[in-house]
Design a protein around this nucleic acid. Sequence first.
DNA 1: TGCTGTGTTATAGTTAACTATAACAGTAAA
DNA 2: TTTACTGTTATAGTTAACTATAACACAGCA
Lengths: 130, 130
Amino acid sequence: MDREWNDNQPIYRQLRDRVVAMILDGVLKEGDPLPSVRTVAAEYLVNPLTVLKGYQQLVDEGLVESRRGRGMFINVGARSLLLKGERQKFVTDEWPRIHETIQRLGLSAEELLNNDGAAPSKTDEEKPKP
Amino acid sequence: MDREWNDNQPIYRQLRDRVVAMILDGVLKEGDPLPSVRTVAAEYLVNPLTVLKGYQQLVDEGLVESRRGRGMFINVGARSLLLKGERQKFVTDEWPRIHETIQRLGLSAEELLNNDGAAPSKTDEEKPKP
DNA sequence: TGCTGTGTTATAGTTAACTATAACAGTAAA
DNA sequence: TTTACTGTTATAGTTAACTATAACACAGCA
């Protein structure tokens, strides 16, 4: 049903990324509680410690506050903090490599960015480098 | 000096990806020998077994042929085989996730395409979702 | 108080990735 | 043959990620 887990990345980081995505998408707002460690562990058939590790990462980043006995809650300013940090990280760390790959494969970055997830255009199959 | 290794991915797969990139870029052509296992291991301060594992992957993909005592050589048709396979993999497996991230961060195509690794443009810092 | 839900810590075991060290096996050239 | 490269296999140890199981600590509510 769900695409579940990606083999390229440790689960705890994928968990962290999901929460980040939910904050950016506005699904989780400041003050909202995160789904409990045990709940998530049960739902995704994962060890509670793995979930905790992902959540701890969020605490370390100042995005989430942990209150023993109560739960974990989104901090105020979490979203704007993320918009700065994640943009920075993406643009300087990830995009350059991605862009390189796109060019190497002879794909058009423009086309990919404008397509809303539609099928890729099937242009030249062979295009030997000069 | 070099960006060396990326922590998100096992070294042997990064090695595999580098060779793939060299093939796509035409740095390594059909029939060319790969740099020897021991050479690479020494140059990158990595265990020979790790290099071998990366190379074996290429053999399994039919991109490279191993000749005991001689070396490892790029197969004929390796590049065109890659152009098909890697494009497919990128467009269907990797790009959707990337595209999602870009939209989530509210990044624009312009921003990404114009920057050649320069500083990101500082547009709207806050842009709450509806 | 007792119960149930939170986060947290402790202990211990498995697997994949990586490492060190060494030996084996084939090719080619001096 | 000897030397010096190749790829390959064997043995064994470390670390990070993940797992199972259990207990501890705190909050809130009946």
